[in-house]
């Protein structure tokens, strides 16, 4: 049966064992070196969806940025502390961008965060925000007060801007719409079909 057993048998078995043993390293190297090619994130600058998954192009997205500076080290959004997490309309994870530093939307600060996107046909900003954050089963719960000028958001994902302390007078959740600071509150914001709304902590 093995009458033709020869050099080839030995060499092939040795190579196979070497490949199997070094496979974890090969795989790790490969994943690191192909990260940019594999990324399905939108990389055209000036696109309202820059840095977001390409399947969200022209759809509605909400992002929440959690600062990781020592300024706000008492933040509590502990579920989303690694890079940026992208969730689809059902709350399922699409991917986690662990090196989100180069991909941070509308912010020069290093942040971690979460984006929920792929929505369509929302018109009222506040309704969109509540429904989109609701897909995470409470991880992104929104706390707000009803004020004279509509809802005032003070807490997202357990991070209450009013309770932040640090080298500043006060902090608040700031609203951005398609790359610019929104000139209306979330209660008056009219959604476009390609709206990306971003919440991040601002200080004064």
């Amino acid at each position: 049966m093995l009458e033709n057993f020869g050099r080839r048998h030995v060499i092939s078995a040795v190579i196979l064992v070497v490949v199997i043993v070094s496979f974890p390293q090969i795989n790790k190297l490969w994943l690191e070196s192909t990260e940019e090619v594999r990324s399905s994130l939108i990389t055209t600058e000036n696109n309202t969806h820059y840095g977001l998954p390409s399947e969200w192009e022209n759809k509605q997205v909400i992002c929440i940025h959690f600062p990781v500076d020592d300024v706000t080290s008492n933040m509590t959004a502990s579920n989303f502390t690694e890079g940026r997490t992208y969730l689809d309309v059902s709350g399922s994870e699409i991917l986690i961008d662990e090196n989100s530093e180069g991909m941070v939307n509308y912010s020069e600060d290093r942040t971690t965060g979460v984006c929920v996107g792929g929505f369509e046909n929302y018109t009222a900003g506040f309704n969109f925000m509540l429904e989109a954050t609701n897909v995470t089963n409470g991880d992104l719960e929104v706390g707000y007060d009803d004020g004279d000028w509509g809802p005032y958001v003070h807490t997202i994902a357990g991070l209450n801007a009013n309770e932040l302390t640090g080298n500043f007078t006060g902090a608040y959740w700031a609203l951005y719409h398609n790359g610019a600071m929104s000139d209306v509150g979330i209660g008056d914001l009219v959604m476009l079909e390609n709206s990306v709304i971003v919440w991040k902590i601002a200080t004064w």
Binding site: V19, I26, N27, S39
Partner: peptide, 27 residues
């Protein structure tokens, strides 16, 4: 992206097949 991620696994399959071919072909 899925295919690109899988290339090291393709390599395993290729090396495995070659080895099995060398060992199993005759019997």
């Amino acid at each position: 992206p899925y295919l690109i991620v899988g290339i090291p696994y393709d390599l395993l399959h290729v090396v495995g097949n070659i080895t099995f071919m060398i060992w199993l072909s005759n019997p």
